[in-house]
Write a protein that binds this DNA or RNA. Structure first.
Lengths: 166, 166
DNA sequence: TATGAAATTCCCTAAAC
DNA sequence: GTTTAGGGAATTTCATA
């Protein structure tokens, strides 16, 4: 999916940066910020969407929601079979409680970030996701007691922006 | 911030669920989905925003972006001083390379998810965030080589939805 | 092949009920 | 909560460099 190159110019970088912070801005406001007409902005955004580069979502503040239990889990698989990994990944993608899942290099195969409505609910989910299927050799849970920062902003440039001072 | 209770009814739960998946839907479309008029939907969304519960952001597909290096870092602090923790958290929130930061229970104090444009860039960032300040006792990095799932969807209900079968 | 300006349509927003 | 009406934004069309 989304194997298209899609060349980005400076306008694109600035637009994507702005939209990752706030996707509710109007085309006019975005255009003013980058020096483009609303039409031009809209055409570019349409292109991002068509290429599967961009989607818009609502982000909720976990602290405004009562009884939200977050947990981080590192997972080591039993064997390195492609089949087992594929099944595991499908399970992660399908589970609504899984917020994020990353394949890692090193001692642990995966990092999973889970959300549940209580610790009891978390145990239930962990049992279902990591024990019942039998592919998991070992997993370790660390409960989150505070979310310090929450976002998904990605840099769109190849190199970090130059700073005045190193 | 956002210490308001804010009672949610079934309409709210369904709306928040839909918007976490796709925030670009129109009020009419959302209203049709939950059985409410566009105006009613709009009033509710306005309320979410006023309470700081909801914001809208654009999410980019990391696989559509070349040269995106993701890394997970667990961090143990030198001492348990409130002052040191506060400073650390402020640094995490300020750094654009930090996608997420969670305070953990157990052996490690924090889990940080970082994004950089290259491994070299990552090293530079890690040096700046975890070494230069001197509050960090130990940190361990695991590079991400594949993003299996990426989202921030939170359940808004106290209990998980009942299933037909346990 | 990109742009910006104008016209149209549609949606958001705020009334009144 | 819904229906209504008005203003504003998104989208299309068009002329242009």
């Amino acid at each position: 999916m989304a194997a298209t190159p899609l060349t980005l110019d400076e306008f694109d970088h600035r637009l994507l940066d702005l939209m990752q912070r706030d996707a509710s801005r109007t085309l006019t406001s975005l255009g003013d910020a980058v020096g483009l007409s609303p039409s031009a902005v809209q055409r570019r955004i349409t292109r991002y969407r068509r290429h599967g580069l961009l989607r818009e979502v609502a982000v909720l503040d976990p602290n405004a929601l009562p009884a939200t239990t977050l947990a981080t889990v590192w997972v080591a698989m039993e064997r390195d079979t492609l089949r087992l990994h594929t099944a595991f990944r499908a399970r992660m993608r399908a589970a609504t409680e899984v917020q994020q899942c990353y394949a890692l290099a090193g001692e642990w195969d995966y990092l999973v970030i889970l959300v549940a409505s209580s610790v009891a609910h978390y145990r239930e989910v962990a049992e279902r996701l990591f024990v019942d299927e039998g592919n998991v050799r070992r997993y370790e849970t660390r409960l989150v007691f505070d979310t310090v920062k929450l976002g998904l902003n990605l840099p769109t440039r190849q190199s970090p922006r130059r700073r005045r001072k190193a």
